[in-house]
Amino acid sequence: MGTVRVTIGWAATIVSVLVCFDAIGNARAGSPTLSKIVREVQPKVVKIYGSGGLRGLEAYQSGLLISADGHVLTVWSYVLDSEEFLYVVLDDGQRFRASIVNHDPRLEIAILKIDSHDLPYFDLKQETAAEVGAGVLAFSNLFGVATGSESVSVLHGRVSARTELTARRGAFETVYKGPVYVVDAMTNNPGAAGGALTDLQGNLVGLLGKELRNALTNVWLNYAIPVDQLRQSALDIMAGKNPPRIQDESAEKPTHPHTVQRLGILLVPDLLSRTPPFVDQIVPGSAAQRAGLQVDDLILFVEDRVADSIESLREELEYIDRIDPVRLTVQRGDELLELELKLTPQEADR
């Protein structure tokens, strides 16, 4: 069995080398294939500048244009914390204020929107996958090297594996547990997250993931989330379908809704325009404590609706009658947990 597996691995590798040499062969024959493909892909990758800038927290990352009208797919991170300081810079140096359409905390992706049209973009509906061993290109603004009208950087490599991040549970602190492409190009660099992993023809196969380090071995993982994993969520967000950010404005609010205080939750100070709702303290004996909520938990959802800031969390709670239980989805370390908070009649009454 072992021998068979090794043989398959070799065969896959050989195929990749052939593909790679083929690209060189074409380039040498006079048609600059690879540089031409690179030049076609680069305008679809954008530079994103936002929050951060403190030591070890770079205030920039990468993103992909996924519609002609300026939808940008990127990773959900602290860089997007404040819409007031969120900019997208295109390949030609054009700079836009960006708004956040929505995000999917389970995939840790977000869709931004800039006010433009007729842009080159990656079509997410296109079915593309990369075989293990296939040659790939990684486009990103790693280290923030590309400024102004400079094009994003491109690295080359191969798909080393398609595997699940959960395969080494506990080794990587990440919310996303689905399949990933592991690549041998050094994509795991500051600012690279949100960039494109393409095949050698320039077809999008994955979104470069956030920086990830194996807590046990200290090794940084170069990986990308396959397009097939994020396609539906991204298309839904673009279509405005799921998950809705807040209740329909016309929905009726109860007279006595929940509040974070009544649930026994004290949040971190609301300083940013989109302060992430981290739990700062728990009131002893409160519904929050009974449900097992802990300090430093990050609240992601109220029921099935995204609560990506303290403000939106408060808004969402306004739609739930305090006699009903509240279902919160929280992130604790690299775990996602669902907790149900229920007030006692006395607590609800006061």
Partner: peptide
């Protein structure tokens, strides 16, 4: 993995063969 693959290719080219596991290596490669 890349090094191994290259080593295989080089070994084959050194032996003068244009075949690998029964597969013809394309001329362009």
């Amino acid at each position: 993995m890349r090094a191994t693959a290259l080593a295989i290719i080089l070994a084959i080219s050194a032996s003068g063969g244009g075949r690998l596991y029964g597969q013809e290596i394309p001329e362009a490669v």
